[in-house]
Amino acid sequence: MTYIYAIVFVGILAMFYALGYYLNHKTPLPKECQDLKLECEGCNITSCEVHPVHDIKEEE
């Protein structure tokens, strides 16, 4: 029975996260915040979404 509780509990949390993600991406950015950029110099973790390497790819 404990395993069923565990699966249901993680399912609820995952759904809660998915809902938050969906609602957050659906909410438009305020007008004055359209071109906000994080001034991160970048470490060696290129998978990080604020790493400058992604800006270079977008420009290309």
């Binding site: 565990a6 949390l13 995952a14 996260y17 993600y21 957050n24 909410t27 950015l29 915040c33």
Partner: peptide, 22 residues
């Protein structure tokens, strides 16, 4: 289940916080 619970709660909390502030 504390680790997986906390990861999901933190990620969800940040999403909702960002949405409300936005």
């Amino acid at each position: 289940m504390d680790l997986i619970t906390f990861i999901l709660v933190i990620a969800s909390f940040v999403q909702f916080t960002e949405m409300f502030i936005k």
